[in-house]
Design a binder for these strands. Sequence first.
DNA 1: ATGAGTGCAAAAAGTTTGCACCGCT
DNA 2: AGCGGTGCAAACTTTTTGCACTCAT
Lengths: 165, 165
Amino acid sequence: MSDFAPQNVAVAPEEKFREFLATRGKRLTQEREIIVREIFSDHEHFDVDEIVARLDKPQDGRRVSRATVYRTIAQLEEAGLIRKVARANDREVYEHDYGYPQHDHFICAKCNSLTEFRNEEISAILERVALELGFRMSGHRLEAHGICATCAKPPARRHHKLDMI
Amino acid sequence: MSDFAPQNVAVAPEEKFREFLATRGKRLTQEREIIVREIFSDHEHFDVDEIVARLDKPQDGRRVSRATVYRTIAQLEEAGLIRKVARANDREVYEHDYGYPQHDHFICAKCNSLTEFRNEEISAILERVALELGFRMSGHRLEAHGICATCAKPPARRHHKLDMI
DNA sequence: ATGAGTGCAAAAAGTTTGCACCGCT
DNA sequence: AGCGGTGCAAACTTTTTGCACTCAT
């Protein structure tokens, strides 16, 4: 889904998380480590339910509960390792916010797919507007809605296939 | 909250809604009319619960149920009269999407206030990116997060007040 | 021992829905 | 009469929380 190359990834997410937790007098437990590893095992977008499902069968002899997944994801967000990018199927969709450049998404109303795109101009504009408004901006979330290229022309494609049979 | 002037408002929202409903073989009932009027009685952002609360005491001798508010708001969204702009307090926040120019919002993490701002460049950029991606864009939702000007300096203000007492 | 952390189940909170009754056309 | 619409309450979904138990230091 993402065609961006990782950057600034000097330290593994687990370590980054451990550092964050330490500043709060908390520990990187086995459960938390399992969750972080699962989340950073690929660069796909994800939602809580997906992670819970993936961790339903024991990893390293441990099964992580839904409650812990919720609690840990909230902390990963605070730590700045992940962020909410959109809302689909009534669920928050998250993505990595560590080692990847800022970007935004197109969301297809038909297939629900998220397509990332990167544009520095938008961030620059927001910085400028924030300054004007005296707003101390910490980040943004931009979803463009519509129909993706693939879903936009399925009838034509089907027609073509039929013609060839 | 909004300092934008209405535009393109040739027909009242009620009429616009009636037309929309008609195309689907549905009627503008008294309940629906009450809801639309309530929603368009001002230009503030709103969420479902607020509208339900405002309509809890009978209007024109009728009390509108929560279920009907949900059903009607969904239809108003389909009709393009309102749109979701953000999510605050775990609720969808709506605003008028009829007769008002496209704009985006800054959301204060402290006081939850929405500050509107308008910037044509952003829409233009999105149009351009959409074209590149072959995405058929219908609209976008952009939330900038951070701390608003008012909340950014409350300690100083409090201090000032105490000094004067 | 002590405090953080977890699982479980119950509880919230927001939203949807089945159903019987109501009312407009 | 007929079909759309409504209110109510129950159901559902996602997320949070109270509590007793566990684990690491």
